[in-house]
Simulated assay, not measured.
Amino acid sequence: MATTTDTKNYKFNHSMLRVKDPKASVKFYEFLGMSVVKKLQFPDAKFDLYFLSYDSPKALSHGNSTFDREGVIELTHNYGTEDDANFKVNNGNAEPHRGFGHVCISVDHIQAACQRIEDAGYRFQKKLTDGRMKHIAFALDPDGYWVEIISKMIGSKGADDPEEKGQQTDPGTYRMNHTMIRVKDAEKSLKFYQDVLGMNLFRTVEQSAAGFNLYFLGYPGSKGVPENGFTADYEGLLELTWNYGTEKDDSFKYHDGNAEPQGFGHICVSVDNIDAACSRFESMDCNWKKRLTDGRMKNVAFLLDPDGYWVEVVQNERFAGKENF
């Protein structure tokens, strides 16, 4: 394994969500075409982890080891929540606990994909036909987390696209495209994710009339930076949502998902050499939730981004030649 670190080798590996009932949640994400690529059980600590990823032969990360992927969703189940009638996760979209927004899948034929989800009995926060934006939808997973659905087809008009009529959908072609978090100060957050974590800014969407901007960041990898700004065929992107003016309000703060009420837990970046990467972060005066040397788990670390969201750092197994767990 190399003794140095290069952010060009980093991957936005996963986003972690706490779930009430793992059977229901795994079933939902498998219905969306994902597969459980790893399950970790910690009975002494009374929790299990389920790592789901697109893994069909058409998937970008097909066949890779768990931490050599992008666009993974990690579901965390704390024993007993499934039997607790009062347990409910914070989905990150209800005041006063907003922060995390959604995960997003991109699909081949959006009308057929949304109809398939509806036919299976799953609920929607926003159907394709709702509102003015006819090209996106938001399904709800069993815990009420929002799952955005977008089209991989350039120029798709979604509900208003006649070419979508009568098409069939193949979940094996889907991507886990991005994870959205709200940020207080766009400038500070962009600097952190670009300068510290080495991500590239792929696309900026300015919605000045509505008072917010969207920033899509990711690691170029073998696909490179999108030349036309079209990012729907990528996996493992990070969307930052900035509402104008929040940076000027000293009392304003987003919910990180780890304070009560809990829900979203963290995002995770896998690196080529975890010791060298953490030494680099140390030299950049980063804020830590957990250093490698803290606690019992000596193979994971957690940084804090400018909003206090947790960013896990793990070893990419391809560079180490062995599994992390």
Rank of each mutant, 00 (worst) to 15 (best):
Y174Q: 06
Y174W: 14
M176K: 12
M176L: 11
M176Y: 13
N177F: 01
N177K: 02
N177S: 12
T179E: 10
M180C: 12
M180R: 03
M180Q: 09
I181D: 02
I181V: 00
R182S: 05
R182G: 09
V183D: 02
V183L: 09
V183W: 03
K184R: 04
K184A: 05
K184D: 05
D185E: 07
D185V: 04
A186W: 01
S189C: 05
S189Y: 04
L190M: 02
K191W: 15
Y193S: 13
Q194M: 12
D195G: 14
V196G: 00
V196F: 06
L197N: 04
L197F: 02
G198C: 10
M199G: 06
M199D: 03
N200E: 13
N200P: 13
L201H: 03
L201W: 10
F202C: 08
F202S: 01
R203S: 06
T204N: 13
T204I: 08
T204R: 02
S208R: 15
A209G: 14
A210M: 15
F212T: 02
F212D: 01
F212N: 03
N213Y: 11
N213T: 07
L214S: 05
Y215K: 10
F216Y: 03
P220Q: 10
P220F: 07
G221I: 05
G221W: 06
K223F: 10
K223Y: 10
V225F: 00
P226D: 08
P226T: 01
E227R: 09
E227S: 08
G229C: 13
G229W: 02
A232I: 13
D233R: 12
D233I: 09
D233Y: 06
Y234F: 08
E235W: 14
E235I: 07
E235Q: 11
G236W: 08
G236P: 02
G236H: 00
L237S: 03
L238N: 00
L240T: 02
L240G: 01
W242F: 03
N243Q: 15
Y244K: 14
Y244P: 11
Y244F: 12
K248F: 08
D250A: 07
S251F: 10
S251V: 15
S251T: 14
F252T: 11
Y254L: 10
H255A: 05
D256R: 10
N258L: 09
N258I: 13
N258E: 04
A259I: 13
E260H: 11
P261E: 10
G263D: 02
H266Y: 04
